[in-house]
């Protein structure tokens, strides 16, 4: 196991290097620079000084090597737009916020999604099936910016206890977490329903039933355990999607998370911040994938790690 994980970490480093390289190339092929502003033009020598200050005057290859060296030391440098914080500080401040939102959303989705899916599968084509599927479809039917705006206008501004925007207490997180959770919830519910139906048709379920095990035990012990695999397999991407994709919700609810920087840093051409959030995001994503794979091998009796050996 330890050997497997070490191997995966070594692979992860190669992956991150590839991500850095591609992002670096993409970033510098998009027109524009971080220092342009609408109403004024900056004298050439000032522009040169700004470029020098952030090392942008050097040849691209040198900049690239410099980036790699700094990133190896986990130093993401200075933001080119936000003078008051380094990129490390921005990430250290923003990530816990986004992560908390993301984790809360995933917990909500994991509690209700598979449950809805399982119920739907057990009562296929009966009322509970239709009801749970309609509930989960509603979750994917409204774009998050519409949903978030409705939450603000109809819930947050009416219920005193729920704040409209801001961050700090649990009550600030309720509406944004729910708004974020609906999409993965629906996704989990539907995947669960479909894989559960498949599992229920398997021989081992029939065998278990014929051995006289109670229906409840069969479902809990055999069906759910096997049916949840596809849900687990997309968990990693779902979590990282939530963290990166929460910018709409963060914007609407005024939440100081990391999500917004995935878009604003690109619009601002804040090169260091783009690199910082990208590399960090890649690390989180890869960690998630690794965890999911490990989890997968732990719960799926059919996959064994030893296979990697031969």
């Amino acid at each position: 196991m330890a050997k497997y994980i070490l191997k995966r970490i070594a692979l992860a480093i190669v992956t991150i290097w590839a991500v850095i390289t591609i992002t670096f190339v993409l970033m510098h092929s998009v027109p524009g620079n971080p220092f342009a502003t609408e109403n004024r033009k900056i004298p050439e020598n000032i522009m040169e000084n700004l470029m020098k200050k952030y090392g942008l005057d050097k040849p691209k290859s040198e900049q690239y090597i410099m980036y790699l060296k700094n990133i190896a030391r986990f130093d993401f440098g200075e933001s080119m737009k936000q003078d008051s914080e380094t990129v490390n500080q921005i990430i250290a401040r923003g990530f816990p916020v986004s992560a908390r939102l993301g984790v809360q959303a995933i917990i909500i989705a994991l509690i209700f999604g598979p449950a809805l899916g399982a119920i739907a599968a057990l009562y296929q084509n009966k009322a509970p099936d239709y009801i749970s599927m309609i509930i989960s479809i509603i979750g994917v039917s409204v774009p998050s910016f519409v949903l978030g705006s409705f939450f603000v206008q109809f819930i947050a501004s009416k219920v005193d206890w729920i704040p409209i925007s801001g961050w700090g207490e649990f009550r600030h997180t309720i509406l944004p977490s729910i708004a974020l959770a609906l999409m993965p919830l629906a996704q989990f519910a539907r995947l669960m329903r479909s894989s559960m139906l498949e599992v229920l048709g398997q021989d081992y379920i029939k065998t278990a039933k014929s051995k006289g095990i109670s229906r409840f035990a069969v479902i809990m012990k055999h069906a759910i355990r096997n049916a949840i695999l596809p849900v687990v397999s997309i968990l990693g991407t779902t979590i990282s999607n939530l963290v990166a994709g929460s910018f709409v919700i963060e914007k609407i609810f005024g939440i100081p998370g990391l999500g917004q920087f995935f878009t604003t840093s690109v619009f601002n051409r804040d090169y260091t911040l783009i690199m910082g959030v990208t590399v960090f995001y890649a690390m989180v994503l890869i960690a998630m994938m690794l965890l999911v794979d490990v989890a997968y091998t732990l719960i799926d009796p059919r996959i064994r790690l030893t296979k990697e050996g031969h």
Binding site: R100, V103, A295, I299
Partner: peptide
Amino acid sequence: MSKKILKLISIFLVLAVLFTGCSSPAS
């Protein structure tokens, strides 16, 4: 529930703790 489900749950709990660990400065 089976041990493996428990293992899975504990992994995600560890994950959650990691996040809370990250957010300790904020808390």
